[in-house]
């Protein structure tokens, strides 16, 4: 479970201080889905980076299962990312020189999984996102939707507790967007993940059971019945 208390993230741009997040309080229970929406520059990605342990709050605490991520050493934070959190990025962020299967394996490498086991689990993860026939393809040989599926397989292959997706459909056409959103929701339900999705897509936001809107660093959460 995530517990954010009075979280502020301040960036310094020259002499000007900008609060990307200003006193955010938020709780995300295990297995919950939260969709975060807001205008560009509103602080969505900053929130996701704090949740993912990629960055540290200027003030306030971000705790995951009772551990203050801001108080962890860099090495400990890296271990948390490696074992607990899966990321999906807007631009897929695949390694262009590695095949789909090898890209998925990069998520297992820091966990010390042996090569054969890595290959097996990566193949299974790709099969689960419908890319069993594309194991040896390089990212450049895959469509945008297929690349995002590879990224999803990479995020999930280590069986994380948390899945953080930053505009995962931002670079996809509508049909593919629906496929990917459907795939992510299906996996969330199937795997019981804590799932945080950042988007500016209103159609996705409408389907969210819990919506957080962020503007100028301020967060407003709306609870609703699942569609």
């Amino acid at each position: 479970m995530y517990q954010l208390t009075g979280v502020t993230k301040r960036y310094q741009r020259g002499k000007e201080a900008i609060d990307a997040l200003a006193g955010v309080d938020l709780t995300i229970a295990d297995g919950d889905q939260l969709v975060v929406r807001g205008p560009t520059g509103g602080g969505k990605s900053t929130l996701l980076q704090l949740l993912g342990g990629l960055d540290r709050a200027t003030s306030g605490t971000v705790s995951l299962d009772g551990t203050d991520l801001g108080g962890l050493s860099e090495a400990a934070l890296t271990r948390v990312r490696a074992a607990t959190i899966g990321f999906v990025f807007q631009s897929f962020n695949l390694i262009p020189t590695l095949s789909a299967q090898e890209n998925v394996e990069t998520a297992l490498a820091p966990l010390g999984v042996k090569a054969a086991e890595r290959a097996r689990r990566a193949a299974e993860a790709l099969e689960s996102v419908g890319l069993a026939e594309r194991l040896t393809h390089l990212p450049g040989e895959l469509s945008g939707g297929q690349q995002q599926r590879v990224a999803i397989a990479r995020a999930l292959v280590k069986q994380p507790k948390v899945l953080l997706a930053d505009e995962p459909t931002g670079n996809l056409d509508e049909d593919t967007r629906d496929d990917i959103v459907g795939l992510l929701e299906g996996l969330w339900k199937e795997l019981g993940l804590t799932y945080v999705l950042v988007t500016h897509d209103s159609s996705i936001a409408k389907r969210a059971p819990r919506l957080a809107v962020i503007r100028k660093g301020r967060l407003k959460v709306t609870e609703r019945e699942a569609a």
Partner: peptide, 16 residues
């Protein structure tokens, strides 16, 4: 930068 940032986000230590 993006490549290495991604690997670090996936849990690769700086040393790796």
């Amino acid at each position: 930068v993006r490549e290495f940032g991604t690997l670090k986000a996936l849990g690769w230590r700086s040393g790796r």
